[in-house]
Simulated scan of single mutants.
Amino acid sequence: MRRIGARFLGLGFIGYPIVSPAAIAMSSEITAGWWVPLSIVMSVVPGLMLVVASSRSGTRWLGPLALGTWCAYLGTVGLWFLAWDGSTLSDSAGNAQWMIAFCGMPSMVLMLVHPGLAALSLLTSSGLAHVSSQMGRFGHLTADLPFEVLWSFVFTSVFLAVVLVAIRTGRTLDETQEDTYRSAANAAAATAREAEKARFDAIVHDRVIASLLAVRTGRPDERLAEQARSALDELECVPDRYDAAPVSASEALRRIRSAAAGISERIDVQVVAIESPGEAGDHVEYPFDVVAAIVEAMSEALRNVMRHAGRGADCGVIVQLAPDALNMAVVDNGEGFDPEAIGPGRLGIAVSIRGRMARVDGGHAQISSHPGRGTTVQIGWTRP
């Protein structure tokens, strides 16, 4: 939202000289020849910088650029007093200071980063602009100056309030999203615990208690002994239910391709290190939990690409199958980001990728990214 706001305001700085030729002509009548071209440049250049910078990811550039825009405006209006030749407009209703038309624009840019500075900017910019305008119209300050400054301040404050509400709404949405992710993770964990408890309770009720109730004095029935052994075996398997049969390399590759296609048909999956999934891949097997963790971590990385890399970003998955290792890289050429700037509430990387692979013996995950240079997520497992 800050980037979109900066882009919109930058176009405003560029557009004001285009729609103000009459006011610019009036200002040129009472100022030195160098001031009008300078004032146009000092309006257009900050606007261009805002538009160009808004295409970059992140907003670290916004604070310094907003301060620079305000200083450029104040400096240009201040130079008007040096360029003024002391005469006044023939029509006192005209515009002696054409830049008065957008005296609130620098404060709107500052509102994207600091509301307090925005209010100060509005007061100083509008005050200086109206002083120069009255000097050029009348040759002196009139009693209307406070009312003109107040009107400019109140009028522009409406737009500043709109910007402030938009920024706060975006921040609230970010916080709500983080809370939702956290709640969803807690709910999923609670559901998994309840499901496991329900399975355990069912075995205890249907097998263990039934076997105990069937016990009678005397020599036990051999079938009852077998039933008891079976119940004990099933109880031992409950905690390890997810340690299912090993997965062959060809089956692991099929699951990887299926998960990638389920997220987007445009994702290309390339395989290296084995000749044929149907031949060399049949005798290579990986633990079930390893394949499940890698597929889920890859899916989260691909979902992040779809959400954050940008509309035109390309993405590919490179899979390396080896007898004692299973590695992959999810690569995109999107907008990228700063991994160190990710907040603790963002569960996608911390929990769904790094955390998931850390829970697998021999698993690892690494994220490499830079703003504007895409992202590479390396996921892998090496047999202990």
Rank of each mutant, 00 (worst) to 15 (best):
P323V: 10
T176N: 09
R266Y: 15
A53F: 04
V131Y: 04
S54D: 05
I167A: 01
P339R: 02
A192V: 14
L253K: 01
S28Y: 02
A22C: 09
F337A: 15
L65V: 05
I318E: 12
D206S: 14
P220I: 04
V305N: 01
R229N: 13
A280D: 08
R383D: 04
S183D: 08
A297F: 02
G86C: 05
T191D: 14
V109W: 14
G374W: 02
R182E: 02
A292P: 06
G312N: 06
A322E: 11
V360D: 04
S121A: 03
N95Q: 13
L235C: 12
A32W: 04
G355L: 02
S299Q: 00
T156A: 11
A166Y: 02
L128I: 05
L110F: 02
V238S: 13
Q378G: 14
A322Q: 15
R359M: 12
V215H: 03
L321D: 08
M298W: 00
A309E: 01
T156K: 10
L112H: 01
T217P: 13
A252T: 00
F200S: 10
P384V: 13
Q227K: 12
A228M: 14
T142S: 10
G47F: 07
M306S: 04
E234G: 15
A32E: 15
E196A: 06
V215T: 09
A293H: 10
P384I: 11
V208T: 07
A245W: 08
H370F: 12
C315R: 05
G310Y: 03
M42C: 12
D332M: 03
A83D: 14
S20W: 00
V158Y: 02
S125V: 09
R356A: 00
D314Q: 12
E251R: 00
T156N: 15
A350C: 00
D179C: 11
S258N: 07
M105I: 15
A260F: 06
Y242C: 07
L235W: 15
A244G: 14
V51W: 00
V351G: 01
T156F: 10
R307L: 05
T375S: 02
E340Y: 07
P37T: 10
A187N: 12
L224F: 02
S250L: 04
V131S: 05
I318F: 14
G281K: 02
P146S: 03
I263D: 01
F147S: 11
A293R: 06
G374K: 04
R356S: 01
P277Y: 00
T88C: 14
L326Y: 13
F153D: 03
A22Y: 02
H364K: 09
E222H: 15
A198N: 10
S230Q: 04
V19R: 15
P21V: 01
V165M: 13
P371W: 04
V291A: 06
I379C: 00
R354Q: 05
A329I: 10
V351A: 01
R383H: 07
P37R: 14
F147C: 08
A301G: 01
L164P: 12
L173S: 06
D324T: 12
P106T: 11
D282V: 15
A280R: 11
L173D: 11
A293K: 09
R257D: 10
L321S: 12
I367F: 07
A66D: 02
